[in-house]
Design a protein around this nucleic acid. Structure first.
Lengths: 333, 333
DNA sequence: GTGAAAGCGCTAACAA
DNA sequence: TTGTTAGCGCTTTCAC
């Protein structure tokens, strides 16, 4: 049966000090004499005392919890982000309450998050209604949209420069001497996909080219597979394809090589986006645009901590530069 | 500036009922008249009331939080587990507080977890000292070691049958007509690696064979790369290799094909373990042993919920069967 | 079914 | 520096 947990009062009794002395001992930055502190520590150790973070939060108004909502972890980019963001926040004394969302009930999830009195919210690959964002802002809870943005909300955003990235790919493929350059979009409502596409067209245009064909992969492996089949079933097959993220690019490469018997990059060049760890793996060796995960995480952390400290929310948009990483999946001219 | 959040007292005042009536309205299973309930709901909606989960936990003793400690998310198996486990627990009204651990400070992490009054703990790819496990048990907090076990603690464990899986691989490779079958171990102290290896030797022995060579990959890509180079630099190269998990197997395949110019499976067969999503990707098409993630997650959830409900901890060990998934990376005879 | 009252374990004034 | 005193927002007896 559960042992009733030991409270600060128990420790105080044993140490023959007041309960507040115990509290102070466990509150960093409070003034306690060395003598009292050691008496408390001895008693605490003896009883196995551990402060109750929930009770502390209730009175202090600081829960030390950051809520992270994420829709899926298939795309390796998100696990990487969650791992590093969690670690970065842990260093600052925060912990992450993880919420998996389904497309649709996003607001409901945020409602739940807020019940836990989180001090900040990160939405990664997840949507948030404007009214919900406004509600968080009203309560002084900073919200960071990670890897997407919505201009009409008070929520901050951290993204890489998807337009510049797309543009770099457009120019790179055009300069690589390709003649029929195609695009496979992600989820069309996502700002990432839209921006990468817009930048891509711009890059092509700068080299006097236009996009040869286009299909939609919806950021899923299956969607990408279908999109690739569709694009490459035409008689004027593309000789290069820019895929809106790495996760889809892998599926595309598999179809091209295994189903359609095409060689990469001899017959067709493939470029992705994200630079997830697998992009560097030998079997894909994917040319791609890096999303600067570490910088994006640092920016997210900074926005959160700053606005938590200020007790006020303001909309910030951090747009970080990512390099084109040239590997072997695309011809260079 | 932060709006002071609205409390049940505010709602009560507006609805002209007592504060306890509001509490009852938001506590499922409490008896409130339909009339009162609707008055409360109207007022709550109007004020944007949201119960404070922390205050509720403090008095009720049920936080609704399950702590998950995990060491790294590189191996795709763990993101998959975290995603599905989170979803499964969310359905039951629980949320997951995520802790990234470093090898070493594991107990410290658990201490932090416990401060949040979690109702259960899952340790995935993370260690836990016996004394810490005992302490959790004393407090009635169930602990599940996910994908590993330690016999000498009160912590429960959920694993797949790694011995049977390893054995299946041993027999499969022996029957496939291979003559020099090697093994690349994971982290040698991990029960998964040890069991897979033991089962593997047993399977080989049943077919009258022994392991030709062995190296250690430590469950990292880099370790696996080195291990593969080491095994295949000898003059009597293996013609088959069982790698202790898929994550390493991908790195091994990359080395074999790209650095050493070997064909898979013609020159060398490769078998992994886990059946992570990428194993099915065309570029690897990896023969592997499935870890039955859904069953393992269901077992984890059951153990947690059951022991939480009982208010008592007992050690349970769930060992689940996983199939050998035959794909194209290994010859079949 | 409802309200009044008593805390859950802790922090944060305040006075000493 | 220390102890005393109020609560934080909620659930849960307990009478009514």
């Amino acid at each position: 049966m559960a042992k009733p947990s030991v409270t600060s009062a128990d420790v105080a009794r044993l140490a023959r000090v007041s309960q507040s002395a115990v509290s102070r001992t466990f509150t960093r930055g409070a003034s306690v004499s060395e003598d009292t502190r050691s008496k408390v520590m001895v008693a605490a150790k003896q009883l196995g005392y551990r402060p109750n973070a929930l009770a502390r939060s209730l009175i202090s108004g600081r829960s030390g919890i950051i809520g992270i909502a994420v829709a899926y972890l298939d795309n390796q980019f998100y696990p990487v982000v969650i791992e590093r963001l969690s670690r970065a926040l842990q260093v600052e004394g925060y912990h992450t309450l993880l919420f998996m969302t389904d497309p649709g009930d996003q607001d409901k999830v945020v409602q739940e998050i807020l019940q836990y009195q989180v001090e900040g919210v990160v939405m990664a690959s997840a949507h948030l209604s404007s009214s919900m964002a406004q509600e968080c802002a009203d309560h002084g809870i900073p919200v960071v949209l990670f890897n997407r943005y919505v201009s009409s909300t008070p929520a901050s955003s951290v993204t890489s420069d998807n337009i510049a990235g797309g543009r770099a790919v457009g120019r790179f493929l055009a300069q690589g001497g390709h003649e029929r350059i195609a695009f496979i979009a992600g989820f069309e409502l996502a700002s990432t996909s839209r921006d990468r596409e817009a930048g891509f067209y711009q890059g092509l245009a700068e080299e006097g080219m236009v996009c040869h064909a286009r299909a939609v992969g919806a950021y899923t492996s299956m969607g990408a597979t279908d999109a690739a089949r569709e694009l490459f079933s035409r008689k004027d097959k593309p000789d290069a394809v820019f895929v809106a993220n790495d996760h889809m690019a892998f599926a595309v490469m598999d179809v091209l090589r295994n189903d359609l018997g095409l060689r990469i990059p001899q017959d067709v060049s493939v470029v992705g986006y994200d630079d997830v760890p697998q992009a560097a793996w030998g079997a894909y060796d994917l040319t791609t645009v890096e999303q600067p995960a570490d910088a994006m995480i640092a920016a997210t952390k900074d926005i959160l901590l700053e606005q938590i400290a200020a007790g006020a929310v303001s909309r910030r948009a951090s747009v970080l530069h990512g390099e084109l990483i040239i590997r072997g999946s695309a011809r260079t001219g």
